[in-house]
Design a protein around this nucleic acid. Sequence first.
DNA 1: CTTATATTATTGTCGGACAATTCAACGTTC
DNA 2: GAACGTTGAATTGTCCGACAATAATATAAG
Lengths: 226, 226
Amino acid sequence: MEETDSRSTVEIVATAVTEAVRTGRLVPGQRLTESDFTSRLGVSRSSLREAFRRLTADGLLSAEPHRGVAVRQLSRPEVDNLFQVRGALEALAVKLALPALHRAPASLIDIQHGLDTAAEAGDMNRFSELNARFHRLFRETANNPLLNETLTRLSNSLYWLQFRILVDRQQVFETNRQHQRLTECVKANDASGAEAAMLGHIENARTLIQSLPDDHFAQVSTTRSD
Amino acid sequence: MEETDSRSTVEIVATAVTEAVRTGRLVPGQRLTESDFTSRLGVSRSSLREAFRRLTADGLLSAEPHRGVAVRQLSRPEVDNLFQVRGALEALAVKLALPALHRAPASLIDIQHGLDTAAEAGDMNRFSELNARFHRLFRETANNPLLNETLTRLSNSLYWLQFRILVDRQQVFETNRQHQRLTECVKANDASGAEAAMLGHIENARTLIQSLPDDHFAQVSTTRSD
DNA sequence: CTTATATTATTGTCGGACAATTCAACGTTC
DNA sequence: GAACGTTGAATTGTCCGACAATAATATAAG
């Protein structure tokens, strides 16, 4: 099973667990016992624990002393907090990326076209993927590794509900309309308009997620205070 | 030397290293070899490595594969990136904290008064401490643990130059004037004004730091791309 | 003096061991 | 029978020692 020895053991474990979470084999809130994973993946506890620690730092897992790690699942207020931060940072990304994107809007227009097509066709998977690329384009073009990294971590914290949103076709159209507005602002080099459009877009997603029933969120909000 | 056994070994190591960095015993860019610290602190490599990993996640240390960890020192562009992110988040903190601070401005006014006094007296240490409390007040009142945590991490990444700024008395007055403007906006419940004041304040600090000579920054900008 | 090789130092990974803590089953007492 | 404290197993926290993999340094050859 292991043919790629180029990566370190920790990386291998990390990607394996990430994939397991991504595909839903590990459900949100599920506890991950060390002995279980060391035997299944054939790695030592040292490597496993470091992988867990990294994934915890990345926001994919959550850890509690003497109780191990679990697949991260945010409570309702935690999701709210995350979207507040994400909104501010995505708006910043738009501001920073705008000059470059205005000069060379090819990739953006490309993605926008794909989004329109996917929305028309009702291809949710493709739309979801292009939606991610849409946001990634801004935060990568912003040319700020720290910003990119921080936003990526926030996205990771939301993997567990990636499946549950955008299920409504009506919502896909609304979401895409916001994308279009943002794209137009970029073409017109309208900085404040673009920022506002992105903020509104994030705010819309926040409202959408908050409208989900309780059982999608973590119960005992383990608001880990530092 | 250590009489507090209540904390875990990792915590003890983490605070010890943090203190060493804080007091300047460990200089920016200095490499921290494991064997050195295990023998000096009398802990195992396991605990030490986990402490290092935590401090790295907190932004105090930087790590490279097969090369261990070092006291974090940012390059000039990295500092710039950090201040862009910090500006957006501190502005968000102001926005979120404003209602509560407007209702109960006692603590803010208290700190502001202390800042004025310290600035007059030219007490740099006290001013610096109160300055930190000023910012902390906003991000703690914002009632968003994630935001608070993120901003704390950013601050940690800048410990290494905590000494080198605000050495100029002129600058202290200018900085304090910005604090006063922000405090006034809070009293007047002027949200956008307060946000702008904070952004300007951060921007000012950014410019101030960027004016420092090259040897205060990391040379080979290890822009750690993930 | 430059390049290539060998040595050394340091980190990465492993396995086992025991202590500390949590959680659940059990029995006692009222 | 229910509330309570106790015992025990399961799990994590920490330690030790060892070796492999890699990077840094020193040495030798051209």
